[in-house]
Computed example of a mutant assay.
Amino acid sequence: MQPPDLRVALFSGNYNYIRDGANQALNLLVGHLMARGATVRVYSPTTETPAFPPTGDLVKVPAFAFPGGREEYKLGRGLPWTTRRDLKAFAPNLVHVSAPEFLGHRAITWARRRDIPVVASLHTRFETYFRYYGVGFVEPGVRAILKRFYNRADRVLTPTASTAEVIRGWGVTTPTSQWPRGVDHRRFSPEARSLDWRRSLGIGDDEVAIGFLGRLVLEKGLDVFADVVTELRRRGIAHRVLIVGEGPARDWFAGRVPQAAFAGFQRGDDLGRAVASMDMLFNPSVTETWGQVTSEAMAAGVPVVAARATGAIDLVQHGVTGFLAEPRDIPAYADAIGRIVADPALAQSMSAAGHARAAGWSWEGASEAVLRAYLGVMRARPLAARAPASRS
């Protein structure tokens, strides 16, 4: 089995209609697979106004808007006959599911009925989301659903070792492989720092800018971020807050951090400039499985203060590239930020150490790790490799 022998049906809940770390990784993966000779077809909900052009062949899956005020996300309605007809014509010999929603569950069932190997990838801590919307009591039930989902796959790809440990704690027994993430080192670099850009936002050259980077949604820990900023003000620690991103919780967040400079959504080299122009990144999220914003900040030479949770604990070296604190420990976060603010030499040391640590994270290496996992699964299922799907 070689890469050109692969015919991969990739199922995504959000391949390109909203820009986030998961679909960035998926699109880069598809480009890498095609460059290595594999054939890939992507099945995902779509919109008339996608965030960016898709990589590879994208097949629209019927979907409905996610309820509860998060209509920007869509849920696939399973596998209607039009999608199954397309799958039959494509005849995949491997199925990759990237989200544990209706479409992903149905895709696994479709593959299992045809003895086609399944690889599942884990991109975020879905089970943690509900606690931010007042329904945290459903979390045990969600974990049970996720356990069943990942136990139906032949291999689970997790970004980090800590994430693999989490799902094993749920009772997932499927073998795991790591699919790390990469960084665009040309874009995320200390050289991208711009004092002029900071000044345009009203941030002085001698002010310490504490940055937030990401979609402005509650599950990113916006409440903790705001509480820590309040604590910093109470302690008299001089700082400015720099917010890079947009999202449905923007107005709520702006009310909690009224003195913050909101730079809005940034993309491309503008995003690299925004990250490098921070003096530290504060990432209190516990939903990450890697923490793309954390790795990009480190590559840009920005010290990181983050939650001691999956993702960050695999990236941030406590006391070397930044600090880790227990997820909702407001005083501990404030202590860590205060130490960096008060000690420019420590900040410089963490900047250099983070930049050096991030140097080994490449998108090519990350995507090649997935390809190796695919080939390993296929070699363990030789009959499936020789018998592509033929039933509707």
Rank of each mutant, 00 (worst) to 15 (best):
M1V: 11
M1Y: 09
R7D: 00
A9H: 07
L10D: 07
F11N: 09
F11D: 12
S12K: 00
N16Y: 09
R19C: 11
D20N: 15
A22C: 02
Q24L: 15
A25T: 15
L26F: 05
L28K: 14
V40C: 14
E48G: 11
P54A: 14
F64P: 00
F66E: 05
P67Q: 05
G68E: 04
G68V: 01
R70F: 12
E71Q: 09
E71D: 07
G76H: 03
G78P: 02
T83W: 09
R85D: 10
R85C: 06
K88M: 13
A89C: 01
A91W: 06
H96G: 01
P100V: 01
E101D: 06
L103C: 05
A107I: 01
R113K: 14
P117L: 01
V118C: 04
V119F: 07
L122D: 00
T124R: 05
E127Y: 01
G136P: 11
F137C: 13
F137E: 15
V138Q: 11
P140C: 08
G141Q: 13
L146N: 08
R148F: 04
F149Y: 15
Y150Q: 01
A153N: 10
A153D: 12
V156Q: 04
A161R: 14
E165A: 15
E165H: 07
R168I: 07
R168H: 14
V172D: 03
V172A: 05
T174A: 06
S177K: 04
Q178K: 10
W179T: 03
R181G: 04
D184I: 02
R187L: 14
F188W: 10
F188T: 09
S189T: 15
R193N: 10
D196A: 09
D206P: 09
G211L: 03
L216I: 06
L218I: 00
K220M: 06
V224R: 02
F225E: 07
A226R: 00
T230P: 00
E231H: 05
H239T: 06
R240K: 15
V241D: 05
V241R: 08
G247C: 02
P248G: 04
A249C: 04
F253C: 04
R256A: 13
V257R: 03
G264P: 00
F265L: 14
F265S: 13
G268S: 09
G272P: 04
G272M: 10
R273F: 06
A274W: 12
A276T: 13
S277L: 10
D279W: 08
T287R: 03
G301N: 12
V304K: 09
V304F: 07
A309Q: 05
T310M: 11
T310Q: 14
G319C: 05
V320D: 10
G322W: 12
L324F: 03
P327V: 05
G338K: 02
I340L: 15
A342K: 14
D343W: 10
P344A: 09
S349P: 02
S349W: 03
M350W: 05
S351N: 07
G354P: 10
H355P: 04
G360N: 06
S362K: 09
V370F: 04
L375Y: 08
L383E: 13
R386K: 15
P388K: 10
A389T: 11
S390A: 13
S390D: 07
